[in-house]
Design a protein around this nucleic acid. Structure first.
Length: 276
DNA sequence: ATGGTCGACTCTCGA
């Protein structure tokens, strides 16, 4: 069974590439980020044509996550619990659309996240709010995932984590020391979650010792042509035996297509599981 | 060569 994730940077602009990908790779679950549309503007018909059902957390113009599945999900969530409060919103207001989750028929939860970018981090005082929000959002995510862990519910969480985990995950780490993707407090936050919950970083587990493998290349400054990229998209597993993970790869070819996203998909393959 | 990319959307922001 394959599970894929892609920061698509507008699902409406790249619906053709998405349909091609679904037909070629045929993942059981496909997590999307930055769909950049409201729910009513999501291309449900085109997704259905490709054989998938879509669970969508949309908003106007920015952000937006979704999960595409070949089967039904239950217990669907379209917002991260407590994240509205982390944004300083009143009860009942919608938080930024950065989270979709549901229970699969195989008994594990599938989660699609678009972690706040956090930049710019250092300008005082108003701009630092973005970094504070990123850290608070991670705290909310930690609490939610810990709830699953304590209930012994396995999960697979996919998405754009907006964290350069190691220096070798970016072409020039010294350019990013004060960037919110690499600040020590941001790295520490994700590392604490991963250690506390014993998350398996699927790509790093199967590509140990390999460096400078990227999932994102900025549109500007000819970054793609110069291979000036960074690895900021990840798939973590929790509650599975490590032997359940068979493969993990990055679909780098997707960055060379016409009208590409600035991110490429990642996919894993896991052992077939019995349906519940 | 005084710019540089892209997407959504409004007279600009976010990445």
């Amino acid at each position: 069974m394959k599970i894929a994730t892609w920061n698509i940077n507008s699902v409406r602009t790249r619906i053709g590439l998405l349909q091609d990908y679904l037909r070629e790779v045929s993942p059981e679950f496909m997590c999307l980020q930055e769909i950049k549309c409201m729910n009513q503007d999501f291309p449900f018909a085109e997704i259905e044509q490709a054989g998938y059902k879509a669970y969508v957390s949309g908003q106007k113009a920015y952000n937006g996550t979704a999960i595409l599945t070949k089967s039904e999900l239950s217990e669907v969530l379209t917002a991260l619990p407590d994240s509205a409060e982390a944004e300083g919103l009143a009860a009942g207001e919608n938080p930024q659309a950065r989270f979709t989750a549901g229970l699969t028929k195989y008994g594990f939860y599938i989660i699609s996240v678009y972690v706040p970018n956090g930049n710019p981090p250092l300008k005082q005082p108003e701009s630092k709010e973005k970094l504070v929000y990123k850290l608070k959002w991670f705290d909310c995510l930690h609490k939610y995932l810990k709830g699953l862990k304590e209930a012994e519910k396995p999960f697979i969480i996919c998405g754009d984590f907006n964290v350069i985990i190691e220096d070798t995950d970016v072409y020039n780490p010294d350019n990013y020391r004060t960037n919110a993707l690499m600040l020590p407090e941001v790295r520490t936050k994700l590392d604490e979650i991963a250690k506390d919950l014993d998350l398996l970083n699927t790509f790093k587990t199967l590509h140990k010792g390999e460096t400078h493998l990227y999932s994102f290349w900025d549109y500007t400054m000819r970054c793609w042509e110069k291979n000036h990229g960074m690895l900021i998209d990840d798939i973590f597993m929790c509650g599975f035996k490590e032997s359940a993970l068979l493969n993990a790869l990055i679909d780098k070819d997707m960055r060379a297509k016409e009208k590409p996203s600035d991110h490429v998909p990642l996919q894993i393959e896991i052992t077939d599981l019995k349906k519940i």
